[in-house]
């Protein structure tokens, strides 16, 4: 039934567009794609420029005398690997903490109608409206007073709660779709409610946990503002701060910045394309139904 309906729709639509109209649509989309992708292609192109050609007005995609010299210099002469390591450890620690907080809280929001539930959910939404940077100053002062300035601990703590509201919303939405009967059956068999959560709900919600975790990781991994404030020592820089310092030496380090960008962006692009569908439905709070 569904299949014939959609087939009919395809047929009608395809017949509805004249060849000229179809060509025009493709032309518009191709122009849009070029505009979307060109800046990144340029980054790849600049990353291949040899030192002598760094500042050139050539627009060729493969620059004359192309080499991987920038990549070598970046990895062996710069702190690139340190930046990545710092980012990785801080993001991983914060996501571990954040996900644990969100997973249990979301379960409470999903399964019990306790007093204050509505207000709690609304509050989580409201926190998303706090301007970026408003909590930066108080958190900065707290971290300085606790002597956690320039430490992994300070950064991990500062990031950990940031993504909890969003993760809680995603996970609550996902738990809502898991039938309660599964847990009730376990309870009848003598499992405790916590056991039912741990043994049934958590394994069933791995996709949502992965997405929430990925989102939390990306938030910390891509953050510039907090890192710019919290980190002063060069050996503690996360990659966004390091990249910004590279770009400050535009005349000499543009190619290395470009190489660094390619190395960080390609895994990010792959991961994003893989997960974008779930990310979108999470961000619009279930408004999009696919």
């Amino acid at each position: 039934m569904m299949r014939t309906a959609s087939k009919r729709r395809v047929f009608r639509k395809a017949r509805g567009d004249s060849p000229a109209k179809r060509a025009l649509i493709h032309a518009v989309l191709i122009v849009a794609c070029v505009m979307a992708v060109y800046p990144f292609l340029r980054v790849i192109s600049v990353s291949l420029r040899p030192g002598s050609q760094l500042l050139s007005t050539n627009l060729a995609f493969i620059p004359p005398g192309a080499s991987f010299e920038n990549y070598r210099a970046l990895i062996f002469d710069r702190d690139f690997t340190i930046w990545l390591w710092n980012s990785l450890i801080v993001s991983a620690a914060s996501v571990l903490v954040g996900l644990m907080l969100a997973a249990t809280a979301a379960y409470a929001f999903s399964r019990w109608k306790f007093p204050g539930r509505r207000q709690g959910l609304l509050f989580l939404l409201t926190t998303q409206m706090i301007p970026a940077g408003m909590l930066l100053l108080p958190i900065y002062i707290m971290v300085v007073r606790l002597k956690l300035f320039n430490t992994y601990t300070g950064m991990a703590i500062a990031y950990s709660v940031g993504s909890v509201p969003f993760s809680t919303w995603i996970l609550k939405g996902y738990y809502d779709t898991i039938p309660r009967e599964l847990e009730e059956a376990a309870l009848v068999d003598g499992a405790s409610p916590l056991m039912a959560f741990w043994r049934i709900v958590i394994p069933l919600s791995t996709p949502a946990l992965a997405i929430a975790g990925l989102f939390g990781f990306m938030t910390a991994w891509n953050d510039y503002m907090m890192a710019r404030v919290m980190l002063q020592k060069a050996n503690m820089f996360t990659w966004p701060v390091g990249f910004q310092k590279l770009m400050d030496q535009f005349q000499t380090a543009w190619g290395q910045f470009a190489a660094a960008s390619v190395l960080v962006a390609i895994p990010a692009l792959a991961l994003f394309l893989y997960s974008s569908k779930w990310l979108v439905s999470g961000m619009t709070l279930g408004g999009v139904k696919e």
Binding site: N222, F243, M247, A268, L273
Partner: peptide, 24 residues
Amino acid sequence: IYRTLLVVPWALPQVIAALAWRGE
């Protein structure tokens, strides 16, 4: 293919995109 290529600006880490545009 169109859809994939068109989301590239969103998929790039914002810091990289912004710094790259600064150079451009």
